[in-house]
Computed example of a mutant assay.
Amino acid sequence: MKKTRLDIDRIRAARRMIDPVFLDTPLYRCEALEARIGCAVSVKLETANPVRSFKGRGTEVVASLLADSGQGAVVCASAGNLGQALAWSGRGRGLDVTVVASRFAAAVKLDRIRALGAGLELVDGDHEMARERAADIARHEGIRLVEDSLDIETCEGAATIGLELVDGAPSFDTVLIALGGGALATGVGHVLKTLAPGVEVICVQPLGAPAMTYSWRGRRVVTTESTDTIADGVAGRCPLPAVLDDLLLVADDAVLVREASIIAGMRMLLDDAGLVVEPSAALGVAAILEDRDRFAERRVVTVVCGSNVDVDAYRRWVGTAAGPGA
């Protein structure tokens, strides 16, 4: 039987390296939201921490291991959330952090990276170009390159969310997980398939950034020429083969959702849960809105993975949204 790159014992060890501010995040049923979407739904809230996303779990593991080994510098490419998280974790351990991002990334995320003390280099292309530039810097300067989802620390840090779901005596049968590079989906999925195999793991991606979903469906890496989605946190074009191999072992399904559904999900999370979230964090709700019959009898958990969103853009989206269930 094939195995993923992840390991439950290492995940439990990773949890001990993570600052408690990122751990034991709220998990609660949202009855007001249930009334609107037609199924039992609980929220796993990964936004109430210093970097407003789940990424801090993985960067805490990365930074802890780097500091213990005496390494002093690190570079990553980021659409915004990983960069913030690595800047926060690195600052606390005396690491020199450089983040490479697209100049078209959300300004609020770029400003936060700078505020956390990281060096920030901008490229004129998309996230894939930022990845290439970060790799160049790592080679030229001889420093550690952190590659989200490829570096197992990022996956096993994210996987600690799965431990909390399982250890909380789960009363759910389905988990909806935003799918981008794959760290969150493979990490949480591995824990659930190991410790709670009866739970269905469904990954959700925007229709405008479908590369990993197409890859999962085809069981081979499928790249796309471009992306077109407001969910910048999951807008990758080039899936990593090792990550896809893991995803194929832990995901029961991968679905694509429309932009209108993402916006409707953001509005519902605001109106019914009091949560301001970035588009990637609304993917789970969007999936339910697009297939209500599938989820009608389910007890669902959706992982609300981030809340780093440009306020003006958020107001435009939420103020004008029109989609399924809106």
Rank of each mutant, 00 (worst) to 15 (best):
Y214T: 12
F172A: 15
E147Y: 01
H190M: 01
M268H: 15
G325K: 11
S53V: 05
L283V: 09
S307F: 01
V199S: 11
L248E: 10
E132S: 14
A281E: 06
A14H: 10
W216I: 10
G80D: 06
G125L: 07
A35S: 14
S280A: 15
V257N: 13
L45N: 13
A134I: 03
A135D: 13
G319Q: 14
V61F: 03
R292F: 01
D136M: 12
P324N: 10
S102W: 02
S102H: 04
A183M: 08
D271F: 05
R298E: 08
D312K: 07
L283G: 13
P26G: 08
P206L: 09
V175K: 12
R112C: 01
A134F: 03
I202V: 14
V123A: 06
T25Y: 07
R219G: 11
G157W: 05
R91I: 00
A85Q: 03
L269W: 11
R316S: 13
V234L: 04
R315C: 02
P239V: 11
P26E: 11
H127I: 11
E46H: 02
V276R: 15
G119V: 02
V277K: 05
V255F: 07
V21W: 10
K3Y: 04
R237W: 06
L45W: 07
E153W: 10
G233H: 01
D173P: 07
A159R: 13
T154S: 14
G38S: 01
K109D: 00
G236I: 11
R217P: 04
G208H: 05
G306F: 01
H190C: 03
E132H: 14
G265N: 08
P206G: 08
